[in-house]
Simulated assay, not measured.
Amino acid sequence: MQIRASTVLPAEREPITLQTADGLRLVGELARPAGREPVATLLTLHPLPTHGGMMDSHVYRKAAYRLPALAGVAVLRFNTRGTSSRQGTSEGGFGDGETERYDVAAAIEYAEFAELPHPWLVGWSFGTELALRWGADPLVEGAVLLSPPLRRAGDADLDAWAEFGRPLVALVPEFDDYLRPPEARERFARVPQAEVLGVEGAKHLWVGESSVRTVLNEIVRRVAPAAHPLPTEWDGPYETDSAFD
Rank of each mutant, 00 (worst) to 15 (best):
M1C: 02
S6A: 07
P10S: 09
P10V: 11
T17P: 02
Q19C: 06
A21T: 09
A21K: 06
A21D: 13
D22F: 00
D22G: 00
G23F: 02
L24E: 12
L26E: 12
A31K: 07
R32V: 09
G35R: 08
R36Y: 05
V39R: 12
T41Y: 01
L43C: 04
L43Y: 01
L43T: 03
P47K: 11
H51N: 15
H51Q: 15
G52E: 12
H58A: 08
H58N: 11
V59T: 12
Y60D: 10
A63P: 08
A64N: 07
G72Q: 12
V73L: 09
V75S: 05
L76S: 04
F78G: 06
S85C: 06
F94N: 14
D96H: 14
G97Q: 14
T99R: 14
R101I: 09
Y102A: 15
D103R: 02
A105C: 08
E109D: 15
Y110G: 03
Y110E: 05
E112H: 04
E112D: 13
F113K: 14
F113S: 14
P117I: 12
P117W: 07
H118V: 09
H118L: 08
L121R: 02
G123T: 10
S125L: 10
S125H: 10
T128Q: 11
T128V: 13
W134V: 05
G135S: 05
A136C: 07
V140K: 01
V140M: 06
E141H: 06
G142R: 03
V144M: 08
L145G: 02
S147Q: 08
P148V: 12
L150C: 07
A153L: 10
G154E: 13
A156Q: 11
D157N: 04
D157E: 15
L158N: 00
L158F: 00
D159Y: 00
F164Q: 04
P167F: 02
L171R: 00
L171C: 02
P173G: 06
F175Q: 10
D176G: 02
L179A: 12
P181G: 06
E183V: 06
R187I: 07
F188D: 05
P192W: 02
A194H: 04
E195R: 15
V196K: 06
L197K: 08
E200F: 00
H204S: 12
L205K: 03
W206G: 04
V207A: 14
G208Y: 02
G208P: 03
G208N: 05
E209P: 00
E209K: 00
S210D: 13
S210E: 15
R213P: 04
T214M: 10
A224C: 04
A224H: 01
A227P: 02
A227V: 08
P229F: 00
T232F: 09
T232Q: 13
W234L: 11
G236H: 11
T240A: 03
D241A: 04
S242A: 09
D245F: 08
